[in-house]
Design a protein around this nucleic acid. Structure first.
Lengths: 219, 219
DNA sequence: CCTCATCCTGACCAATTGGTCAAAGGTTTA
DNA sequence: TAAACCTTTGACCAATTGGTCAGGATGAGG
């Protein structure tokens, strides 16, 4: 078939060559996307497989074909969110200057809050409810990442590049503030007269957050 | 009966004079306290009347005697939390200097995060899930309060007392950061080696938050 | 074509859970 | 003491919902 002759730049057959394979991929994608939204909106218990199925316009039994249990689907949703979190984490360039490293990190986190508010909400939900699923991440990946950044920030302090603040609380402040625009989106929108922040407002928010935090630590 | 002769300073009969009345009060208190905790821990849907009843060591049917529906109980829990929020709001003294007004407000909010983490979590849950219950508060009381504070902060800016930051984002930063210690308590504790913050650590957190924010706006 | 493996789905089941109710047990008041 | 009232509670019900399953549909490979 002609379809099967389609190749990408590396000469590998493109996934869409196989109807089954591509349909599978598409379905997984749709389920995960709507699952994330429904979980964010109603919490784990409040979200129903039926609601996710309806959103994805698939019969409920079909969801159970791809994900044996609700928990399995939830796990997968969390997994994806963590990937995004890692992406932001990478943008904290430890070799850059404090000003550059922090402002880039803050900007990246603000972008994520705008692009993936649902994911952020699911994560927040998890933590609020005692992190039954992500406890592992918190104790390993997140803790390690945090400790290396704390070291870097402490070095900046020693070198007199920033004020002697507790790095831990600086990081918490960055997390809390940037994620606020995703997690408390509804409140932010309500206080904005009911309309979502536009491009200019997001930029203004990012600038304000960056300004206050950087100046706040003496940069 | 002797009991009925007990009076308070105003001459009113003390509630405890009446066995029924005091038992009622006590039960309401116990149900609301445990309800708040269970709602915070599992979300509205995840919390079950049975779980709250067990925590309060009362039969489930008894809960329904005091609160006809789960939603009615939840409403009452939210109502109480809002009272605490108002208490913090009052501490933002608009007649004080920027330094005094803000540092007092931040300290108060940190104290509330420490004293009422469950309440804060329930509130966060509400907003994350689109504020189905508290929408009214957001649009009226919260919005009004916010607008008056924005005016005050703008006056400070005009008078050159603080940097020209967007008051809105300054407030969001204060809310996000202070509430982070309650809502993300589990994450904070995990990154603290699994032990809750002690007195000194809370004080250090408050100092850091206050320092960065105040210096960040040029005070 | 034809066979096989994969995918889809309506109907169904069992467990959970919010809420009801009638009867019993206390407390207050006259 | 006795009547009126309030509170407590076990047993029960109906609705929701996660998950199952058997049989049908569809695409891949020979």
């Amino acid at each position: 078939m002609a379809d099967q002759l389609v190749k990408n730049l590396f000469g590998d057959p493109v996934d869409t060559a196989n109807k089954r394979h591509s349909a599978r991929k598409e379905n997984l994608e749709v389920i995960l996307r709507h699952g994330e939204r429904i979980f964010a909106e109603f919490g784990f218990k409040g979200a129903t497989m039926q609601a996710i199925a309806d959103a994805a316009t698939l019969p409920k039994a079909n969801l159970h074909y791809y994900f044996p249990t609700k928990m399995a689907l939830y796990h997968e949703v969390i997994e994806r969110i963590f990937t995004i979190w890692l992406e932001a984490a990478d943008s904290f360039d430890t070799s850059a200057s404090p000003r550059e490293a922090l402002s880039r990190y803050i900007r990246k986190k603000m972008e994520i809050s705008r692009a993936h508010p649902h994911g952020s909400k699911v994560w927040a939900n998890e933590v609020i409810h005692g992190a039954p699923i992500i406890q592992d991440y918190l104790q390993t990946t997140l803790k390690d990442w945090t400790n290396t950044r704390i070291d870097v920030i402490n070095r900046w302090i020693t070198e007199g590049k920033i004020d002697p603040v507790d790095p831990r609380h600086l990081l918490y402040m960055i997390w809390a503030t940037t994620q606020h625009y995703a997690d408390f989106q509804h409140q932010v929108v309500t206080l904005n007269g009911g309309t979502p922040l536009d491009d200019a407002q997001w930029q203004r928010a990012t600038e304000n957050v960056t300004h206050i935090i950087l100046k706040g630590i003496g940069i």
